[in-house]
Amino acid sequence: MATFVENLGRIDRRIIFIVMALSVVVPLAMRLSLPIPIGEGPSKDMYDAVEALPSGSTVLLSFDYDPSTMPELQPMAVALSQHLMRKDIKIVSLALWPMGVSLGNEAMRSVADSLGKEEYTDWVNLGYKTGGGVLIVRMGSDIQSVFPVDYDGNPVGDMPVMDGISRLSDFDMILSLSAGDPGVPAWVMMAGDRYNIPIGGGCTAVSAPQFYPYLGTGQMVGLLGGLKGAADYETMVRVGVENPPAGTATPGMAAQSVAHLVIMLFIILGNISYLAGKKKKGGAK
């Protein structure tokens, strides 16, 4: 028995990979569904902050990520766009990451088409500019000096969605979907704290703990952390909506939960094996 327990710590890593793969593939293939209870927390705070915005408000939505973090951040982009557009909140978007332009466009266009929202009137994508924090500072005084045209080359000043918007402080809220730097920290530092604009958004799970202090101090109004945050928001946005569109984060959470259980199991087995080996060595002495 002791040998079996000790051998548990020497399982071929490829067996662990196979079990991990199965723990993800099987729940997804079987369309396993697990409940996602949403209590008080950063995701709910984010939803409540957007919900509190009156119709006709204008929000700056910054897509600060690329395809490598799509599984976590793209569902947030879709869910946030759905929430904003359903509430008749205008969206002015941009990207601090080059590939964020097309990913943001994809998310907003799909939602806008399904809700009958018009580009340039209800939403616009200004495109990508390099500079990060410097860019944000310049937008603080004059947006059109940084973005004279949108990503399609249309003059920004002629767009109805930009009526009454000339600098950052004209926005009712800034949302950043962030995979790193530049992203949430740059917006908090250069826009939120400087111009007193509410900042919210989402980030990859890896960077979520880094941004939690901003929630405690009120520097951020809410935060969606990783796939869980995306699934929370998808769930909240779907409440009360007839035939809500299917998201990708919520189905992924079942696989996420099973995978986490498997990882915990392996950690426990590894520790049992380690302790058994240690005890045996101690006994031999």
């Binding site: 991990m20 793969a21 993800v24 997804l28 490598s68 973090t69 599984p71 976590e72 990859t204 799970a205 890896v206 990783g226 796939l227 869980k228 992924g252 696989a255 996420q256 995978a259 986490h260």
Partner: peptide
Amino acid sequence: MARISLLI
């Protein structure tokens, strides 16, 4: 969670 999300 982030790494599993990418796999998912």
